[in-house]
Each structure stands twice: as structure tokens, then as C-alpha cells.
Simulated scan of single mutants.
Amino acid sequence: MPTALLDLVLPPRCAGCDAPGAPLCPSCTAGLHGEPARRMPDPSPPGLPECWSATPYTTAARRAIVAYKERGRTALARPLAGALALAVAAAAGERPVVLVPVPGARSALRRRGHDPVGALAELAAVCLHAAGWPTRVDRSLVHRRRVADQAGLSSPERAENLARAFGVARGGKGAVPGSWGGSGVVVLVDDIVTTGATLAEAARALREAGWEVPLAATIAATRRRGRILDNHGE
């Protein structure tokens, strides 16, 4: 039985700590939302925007993201999107924002049956609107070719795997609406950041199409041996 259906017919358990009562308990939600900060991979790939995340990629954050992304627990979308919105707000300050989700590979979207990052970007925009931020989502960023699964690849291998993988759909302009006074900022969004290769390649594609891409925001940033690395599987 699909996990999303099980969530409807069985008492929910927290994806972060397995406590009964909710898809994500108050303690795990607080941990997920509690530490928005600038977190850059070290070393950072050339062209990587300034990266902000809501939390380090600790146990509860990892379990919640994996359950949502890979196991179909779509009820986790709202708390995860809330965390993403906090990271965007910390990065952008009071400026209006254009959220550009990093697209999933077609094979991954078929396997999962949903677009996890795209859905999070839409919900994060709702959260930001509710808080008074002029926000829109632009899905102009697209895959131009197939890429291998990023899991298990080294940092150089990830960069090679993703080289020239993204492009901008015809008609995508990256312009903030004039009614915002030209003070908006483009923010790339993804679920987690590891080496930064995915976000750097996405930023490269947008810049070649004439966009300015100063910022990126994710739910979590991976830490290993004192360095922030990326666990992104695409």
C-alpha cells in the first residue's frame, strides 16, 4: 500500500523520531525550522550562489526529507516547505523573491510519482506570501540531457556528471515584475546542498540566459568531517 495512503488510514508517526501523533512532531519541526543560516560547501564549486539553509542535515532532517522525497510521505510537504521559506527569508531579507526550483530528472520524477522540489517551492511561496513577501515561482529551469544518479559520486565526478545538464526553457526571462520596483532577487531552491555541484550548474544555465542568480536556499546542508557537503541524489 502506498505510504501516502497509509498516512490516511493509520495513526501518523513522526518521520524524524517515530513518535506517534503527527507526520512531524513539534520537536522535530522546531529543529527543522530553528537554524536558518548561510552554509556554503567547502570547497565551493565555481559559480555557486551564496547558499542558505534552514538546518544542518542531521538525523531528523535527513529522515524527514528522505521520507517525503523517496517514500511518498507527501504530508511532510508543509513543514519542509516552511523550513525552505525560512531559509529564503533569511537569504533575501525584505526583498521580493523569484523562487526557481531545481528540476528533478525525468526518471526520478516517474519513480517518485511527484515533483518534490517543485511542490516545496510552490508551498514555500505560499508561506512567504502569507508573511507579506511578494513571491512567485518560475519553472524555466529544465533538464537538457540525462544525468547519472549523483549518490556515491565524488565532488569532481558530480561536477562532470552535471556539466551542461540544465538549460532555460524558451520564454524564460528571469525578470522580476516591474510592479516590484526592480528590487526582487532570484533564489535557486533545492532540498539539500552537498558539494554544491547541482546548484552551481543550475546557476550557470540561468546566467547564460541572462539571469542574475546571487542566492540559493535549501532545507538542509550536509556536514561531513567538519565540512558542509551535498547528499543530493540527482
Rank of each mutant, 00 (worst) to 15 (best):
Val9Ala: 09
Pro12Glu: 11
Ala15Cys: 00
Gly16Gln: 00
Gly16Phe: 00
Gly16His: 00
Asp18Ala: 15
Ala19Thr: 13
Ala19Tyr: 01
Pro20Gly: 09
Gly21Pro: 09
Ala22Met: 12
Pro23Ser: 12
Cys25Tyr: 12
Pro26Phe: 11
Ser27Leu: 14
Cys28Trp: 02
Ala30Val: 04
Gly31Lys: 03
Gly34Lys: 11
Pro36Leu: 10
Met40Gly: 04
Met40Lys: 06
Pro43Ser: 08
Ser44Thr: 14
Leu48Met: 10
Glu50Thr: 15
Glu50Phe: 01
Cys51Met: 14
Ser53Trp: 08
Ala54Pro: 09
Thr58Ile: 01
Tyr68Ser: 07
Glu70Ile: 02
Glu70Lys: 03
Arg73Gly: 02
Leu76Phe: 07
Leu76Cys: 06
Ala77Phe: 09
Pro79Ser: 10
Leu80Ser: 08
Leu80Gly: 06
Leu86Trp: 04
Ala87Trp: 03
Val88Asn: 02
Ala90Thr: 08
Ala91Glu: 06
Val97Arg: 04
Pro101Tyr: 10
Ala105Tyr: 00
Ser107His: 05
Pro116Glu: 09
Pro116Lys: 06
Val117Ser: 07
Ala121Lys: 06
Glu122Gly: 13
His129Met: 04
His129Trp: 14
Ala131Asp: 15
Ala131Asn: 10
Ala131Pro: 04
Pro134Phe: 13
Pro134Lys: 10
Arg136His: 14
Arg136Met: 14
Val142Ala: 03
His143Leu: 13
Ala151Tyr: 07
Gly152Trp: 01
Pro156Arg: 06
Glu157Lys: 07
Glu157Thr: 01
Arg158Leu: 01
Asn161Tyr: 06
Ala163Arg: 15
Arg164Ser: 14
Arg164Glu: 15
Gly167Ala: 06
Ala169Lys: 09
Lys173Trp: 05
Gly174Asp: 10
Val176Ala: 09
Val176Glu: 05
Pro177Lys: 05
Gly178Asn: 00
Gly182Val: 01
Gly184Pro: 02
Ile192Gly: 00
Ile192Glu: 02
Ile192Trp: 00
Gly196Arg: 03
Glu201Ile: 03
Ala203Tyr: 07
Leu206Met: 11
Arg207Asn: 08
Glu208His: 11
Ala209Cys: 08
Val213Leu: 13
Leu215Phe: 05
Ala217Gln: 08
Thr218Ser: 14
Ala221Thr: 14
Gly226Glu: 07
Arg227Cys: 03
Asn231Tyr: 05
